[in-house]
Computed example of a mutant assay.
Amino acid sequence: MGKTSTTVKNRWNVKSYDRLAINVPKGRRNDIEAHAQSKGLSVNGLVGELLRADLNMTEEEWRRKPDAE
């Protein structure tokens, strides 16, 4: 993959996503990764699924930008 491709992907990510960092108790990372994998998800996918459920949002609502409402 060339530098141009990486640059384009980075620009897309900055434009399309907000980044969050979370802290979990030491030693829990492997448990969380295993749990996500058992559901066929990445950790990011698991967190997104849990947030969508807690916010009572459909997949479409979750992906829609708030200013598009």
Results as ranks from 00 to 15, higher is better:
29 R>K: 10
55 L>W: 12
59 E>K: 14
47 V>G: 00
30 N>K: 10
21 A>N: 12
67 D>M: 06
13 N>L: 14
1 M>W: 06
6 T>R: 14
32 I>Q: 01
59 E>M: 13
61 E>N: 06
51 L>R: 10
57 M>N: 05
48 G>R: 07
17 Y>Q: 10
2 G>S: 14
40 G>K: 01
39 K>C: 10
61 E>I: 04
38 S>F: 01
8 V>N: 08
62 W>M: 10
30 N>Y: 04
68 A>G: 02
44 N>W: 03
21 A>H: 08
26 K>H: 12
41 L>G: 00
62 W>I: 03
10 N>G: 04
67 D>P: 00
48 G>Q: 07
66 P>A: 08
15 K>R: 13
62 W>A: 15
51 L>W: 09
3 K>F: 07
14 V>C: 04
14 V>H: 12
40 G>D: 01
21 A>C: 06
47 V>L: 11
42 S>N: 05
52 R>G: 01
42 S>V: 02
66 P>I: 06
24 V>I: 15
53 A>Q: 15
16 S>N: 15
49 E>A: 15
19 R>H: 10
34 A>H: 05
50 L>R: 11
13 N>Q: 12
23 N>L: 09
9 K>I: 11
52 R>L: 06
1 M>A: 13
52 R>H: 06
43 V>D: 01
62 W>F: 14
26 K>E: 11
57 M>S: 03
63 R>D: 12
